[in-house]
Nucleic acid binder design. Structure first.
Length: 176
DNA sequence: TTAGTGATATCC
DNA sequence: GATATCACTAAA
């Protein structure tokens, strides 16, 4: 997996969430499945969540046990359970103390954040692992040319109207 | 449109 | 301790 699918370096994630989210769209996620097989999916949608000022971000109300990983240095996984059923895969971004992250919202063939974690057998045990040192799960750079479009984020009706309107969802399409 | 699912946050 | 909520999905 190392040669064919090199991991994005940690530095990729030590930037602001919006930049990382935009560049992560079109990249791939490679997973060594529990049965030993390899599965690689292309990321088609990401979303940025940007700190305590962002009313849509988990860190909006300050640090808690659940969102503590967001406060760490960029470059680790943050996976949490939603609605009791669905695991959400995120990458923490930015410097330590600045709670930001990127949600992997969809991959080719797996339209939806809960769908893709199920397809890749990802759960909360990945939280806190370093993205460039995890043999079982890694982000792999883009191949080819991609067009990235933006849209408002999904499923954040509790956020302020201003934050709901921010174009922090990134959708990747292959460029012809 | 609605039920399902359980951890978490926020209130007593 | 109790309750309301949640970055969702599948079935109908």
């Amino acid at each position: 997996m190392t040669k064919e699918f090199p991991a994005l370096p940690r530095g990729f994630f030590e930037r602001d969430a919006v930049t990382a989210a935009r560049e992560l769209a079109g990249c791939r996620v490679a997973r060594r499945m529990p049965d030993g097989s390899l599965r690689v999916l292309t990321i088609t949608e990401t979303e940025a969540y940007c700190g305590e000022e962002d009313s849509a971000c988990h860190a909006h109300r300050g640090k808690t046990r659940r969102n503590a990983p967001l406060y760490e240095r960029g470059g680790i996984f943050y996976v949490y359970l939603c609605y009791g059923i669905h695991w959400m895969l995120n990458a923490v971004t930015g410097p330590e103390g600045r709670p930001q992250g990127v949600l992997i919202r969809a991959c080719e063939g797996e339209p939806g954040p809960g769908r893709l974690t199920r397809a890749l057998a990802i759960d909360g045990s990945f939280t806190g692992l370093e993205v460039d040192r995890c043999p079982e799960l890694r982000f792999v750079p883009r191949e080819g040319e991609w067009e990235i479009s933006t849209a408002p984020r999904v499923g954040i009706g509790y956020a302020t109207p201003e934050d709901q309107a921010r174009p922090w969802r990134f959708i990747a399409r292959r460029a012809d």
